Amino acid sequence: MSNANCHEVTVNHQAAMQELRDMHNITMATLKAHEQQKLLLEEDFEKLRLSLQDQVDMLTFQNQSLKDKAKRFEEALRRSTDEQIIDALAPYQHIEKDLKSLKEVVEMKNQQIHQQEKKISDLEKVAQKNVFLEEKIQVLQQQNEDMKARIEMNLATQLTEENANLHESVEKESTEKKRLSRNNEELLWLLQTSPLMSPAPLWSSPSRPSPVPLVHHLWTAHLSHFSCIKI
């Protein structure tokens, strides 16, 4: 074997040995870590076991205490007399009676509620009727106002016509009175200026008529004309 081959074999052998050493170191480190973890788990387990044991012991003690109390209570109940039992049940003797009274109160309240609901329903009906009546009253009031307006308009028209007729009558009467006044003045003037109204002479002629009948005739005719106009 040549020196080169020997050297190559030596190098490969050393590399393989180094790889084995590295793997061994890694394996040992892993085992050591596992061992430490195992120790920690064992410690935690021991702590947990002790804690659980304490809890078990405490629960066992409490259970025994409860058993003792139950036993003493049972013995006390056995020693209790009928009077003690009656005293213990006394607060509950009136439950049935109280329930009956409560039921009666509830029924009475239900009746009151039913009556109130009926009253509310009646009031709602009355309110609806009032609304209808108010609307009807408004319609009637409007009709009344319209009728009043028409009556006032007709009355105003009628009064206007009557006032016009009355004014016309007054005008006619005033005109007639003025005419009669003028006639009276003319008649008075005629009477005053008539020769028949002159002073009579001391002598009288049998053939000269007396002025009195003529004046009486004129005055009578004037009065007759005035009476016809008034009628």
Rank of each mutant, 00 (worst) to 15 (best):
L52C: 03
S80I: 11
Q93I: 10
R78M: 03
I113W: 11
V56N: 12
Q93N: 06
Q36D: 14
K103D: 09
A88R: 12
K38L: 03
T60Q: 09
V105K: 10
L77Q: 10
E104G: 13
N110C: 03
Q112G: 05
Q62L: 14
E42W: 00
K103T: 09
E104I: 09
T60C: 00
D87F: 07
Q55M: 13
K38V: 03
D44W: 01
K109M: 02
L39K: 02
D68K: 09
S65F: 05
A88G: 05
S65V: 04
L52Q: 07
D82V: 15
L102F: 10
L66N: 11
V106L: 15
L99C: 04
E42T: 04
D68F: 15
N63Y: 12
E42L: 15
L50T: 07
L77V: 06
D98E: 14
L77D: 02
L48W: 02
Q53S: 01
E75H: 09
E35K: 04
K103S: 12
R49C: 08
K71M: 09
K103A: 07
T60M: 05
L99Q: 10
M58K: 14
R49K: 15
L77G: 03
D54I: 07
D82A: 07
Q55R: 08
L102D: 04
A88V: 09
L77M: 10
Q62V: 10
L59A: 11
R72K: 03
L48F: 12
T60K: 15
E107T: 11
T60I: 01
L40E: 11
Q37I: 00
Q55T: 13
L39M: 01
K69H: 02
V106T: 06
D44P: 00
T81Q: 07
E104N: 11
D87V: 07
L50C: 01
E104D: 15
T81R: 02
E42Q: 11
Q93M: 15
Q93K: 07
L99I: 13
K69T: 14
S65L: 09
L66C: 03
N63F: 05
H94F: 09
F73L: 12
V105D: 03
K103F: 05
K71Y: 06
N110S: 12
E46T: 03
L40M: 07
D87M: 13
D57P: 00
A70N: 11
K100Y: 08
F45G: 01
Q37Y: 09
L59Q: 06
Y92T: 06
F73C: 00
K71G: 00
L40I: 04
Q37L: 08
Q93P: 05
